[in-house]
Write a protein that binds this DNA or RNA. Structure first.
Length: 518
RNA sequence: CGGAGUGUGGCUCAGUCUGGUAGAGCACCGCGUUCGGGACGCGGGGGUCGCAGGUUCAAAUCCUGCCACUCCGACCA
């Protein structure tokens, strides 16, 4: 009997996609809603994915010269007030600590009115201000620059609506913060981080992205330039998967981050910040998941090869288990993606069919079934999660044990590559180029109302004159009527004459991506 | 914060209109038969029906107030 997920992601009905997403997160046992509004409990399988993301990314961040630090969770309110745009951007979604003690009053435990803090503390929504404060103390001379630091932390943004991994009131992330002597270096740093994210996303998450600069109205509050990587989900919507900001000297001026140059005069630092979060996990689900659940790229699978022994409470069980133990040990001695292979012999006392499907739902890249026949013949039965079904049947193949072990690393790499290729083909195939007028754009994406009835739409690449200020706001408002947003101006720009701007009719200066977004 | 909807065992829900003292499927536990393609039979545990008032002989059901959650908007890694 087939159960699958009971919710398909592809029925032509977009409204099922969010349900499918939630079903995958639940059935793959990654996370669950918590008693705290908008905050999730990340379960071992989901957290295991995050740890692997952290490990790989951390290595890359350190390899580019950054060092890890840790700054306080609480930020004095006055710090935030220093950068005007920054405050305005975050003020509406802040958790604030105003008291430091509880008291039982009339039999009820409540906030002690006598324990009010002199200055309220905010729970960090991001750490530019408190790190900037440290920078102002750390930096005295041009010899101190650049300062290149990163922190792994949790942050809180009091969002109105939340979704597991994609938008939670508390989330985990990495935030890089750097200070430089001049704009050129800081801009280069911003692009270095962007490229690091692009490469990481594609190689490790097998999630193709388009890197580029955000239009002025989508910038991080207080930033001079904001860049993003954008990934296409299986419903055709865009997910901002990472951002990198060139902050100019705005934060430095607001926080007095100055240094003496080699000529003895004073200059403000040029700063940057960049981050990716647990949202990446949501992106992986919506990029690679299918109707049987999650499919994990092997590089971030907490268990890459799971051995399911076919146990039947009979004497030959011992033999099967011994065979499995030895195999797991041998596989764990191999290296894939630069680290030891993560293989597991699943000895849980569950029916083997049930165990197999649990691992299918969790997205384990390779599942090996091991029964008495395999033990006797010195073989393994291989199921690949990226190529699970042959029609309605599960596709499995018996392979000699040595052959499998010898090719296991290559198979993991192949799965990694095939997941990427599949997602890349979807992105390339759904990135439509050449729409020239707003009406054509509207016709292509369909009406914003009755969104549920919408078929899959990809992204449109159009050209524009990069309007600013009020003119840009008008463009944004027009797009909003179609629930469309400008994602970014891809770093990889077409050459030659671009033609005329879709919005203003003036000569176009760059290509931009337009899409519905998360 | 605006609009709509929903709160009943762990999950999905029926029962509410028409008041009579709580059900199904899945999950869980036990026993048996099974086990290489998402098992079956028998037995069992688990719910003050979101909360607080009210009406009534009697409330999951009717009335009032509150709370929470979901979806759609505005906001966002």
């Amino acid at each position: 009997m087939q159960r699958a997920l009971s919710i398909s992601r592809v029925t032509g009905n977009r409204s099922t996609f969010p349900d499918w997403y939630q079903a995958v997160v639940r059935e793959a046992d990654m996370a669950e809603p918590s008693p705290v509004r908008g905050a999730m409990v990340i379960k071992p399988w989901g957290y295991g994915i995050w740890e692997l993301i952290q490990q790989d990314l951390d290595r890359r961040i350190k390899a580019t010269g950054h060092e890890n630090c840790y700054f306080p969770l609480f930020i004095p309110l006055s710090f935030l007030a220093k950068e005007a745009e920054h405050v305005e951007g975050f003020a509406r979604e802040m958790a604030v600590v105003t008291h430091h003690r509880l008291k039982t009053i009339d039999g009820k435990l409540q906030v002690d009115p006598d324990a009010e803090l002199e200055e309220p503390l905010i729970v960090r929504p991001t750490s530019e201000t408190i790190i900037g404060d440290a920078f102002s103390r750390w930096i005295r001379s041009y010899r101190d620059l650049p300062v290149l630091i990163n922190q792994w932390a949790n942050v809180v943004r009091w969002e109105m609506r939340t979704r597991l991994f994609l938008r939670t009131s508390e989330f985990l992330w990495q935030e890089g913060h750097t200070a430089h002597a001049n704009a050129e270096e800081a801009r280069a740093e911003t692009l270095l981080a962007l490229e690091l994210y692009r490469d990481f996303s594609e190689r490790v998450l097998a999630m193709p992205v388009i890197a580029g600069e955000k239009p002025e109205n989508e910038r991080f509050p207080g930033a001079a330039n904001t860049y993003s990587i954008e990934a296409m989900m299986q419903d055709g919507k865009a997910l901002q998967a990472g951002t990198s900001h060139y902050l100019g000297t705005g934060f430095a001026e607001a926080q007095n981050i100055r240094f003496q140059t080699d000529k003895g005069d004073w200059a403000h630092c040029h700063t940057t910040s960049w981050g990716v979060s647990t949202r990446l996990i949501g992106g992986v689900v919506m990029t690679h998941g299918d109707d049987d659940g999650l499919r994990l790229p092997p590089a971030i699978a907490p268990r890459q090869i799971v051995i399911v022994p076919m146990l039947r409470d009979k004497p030959e069980d011992a033999e099967v288990l011994a065979y499995g133990e030895a195999l797991a040990k041998e596989l764990n001695g191999l290296m894939a993606f630069g680290v030891p292979v993560r293989a597991l012999l699943d000895k849980k006392p569950l029916r083997s069919a049930e165990k197999r499907w649990n691992w299918v739902r969790k997205g384990a890249p390779i599942i090996l079934e091991l029964g008495p026949r395999d033990a006797a013949a010195g073989q393994v039965t291989v199921i690949r999660r990226d190529d699970l079904r042959d029609g309605d049947k599960v596709r499995s193949q018996a392979v000699a044990r040595e052959t499998f072990v010898g090719g296991a690393v290559a198979m993991l790499e192949e799965i990694q590559a095939s997941l990427f290729a599949e997602a890349k083909a979807r992105l390339d195939g759904a990135l439509i180029d050449g729409i020239k007028t707003f009406d054509d754009l509207a016709a292509y994406f369909g009406p914003a109302a009755e969104d549920e009835a919408d078929a899959f739409r990809g992204w449109a690449k159009v050209v524009w004159a990069r309007p600013t200020g009020a003119e840009l706001e008008a463009v944004d408002a027009r797009l909003k009527t179609l629930k469309l947003t400008i994602r970014n101006a891809p770093s990889d720009q077409p050459g030659g004459d671009l033609g005329t701007c879709l919005f203003t009719g003036r000569p176009a200066v760059e290509a931009i991506l337009i899409a519905r977004a998360y």
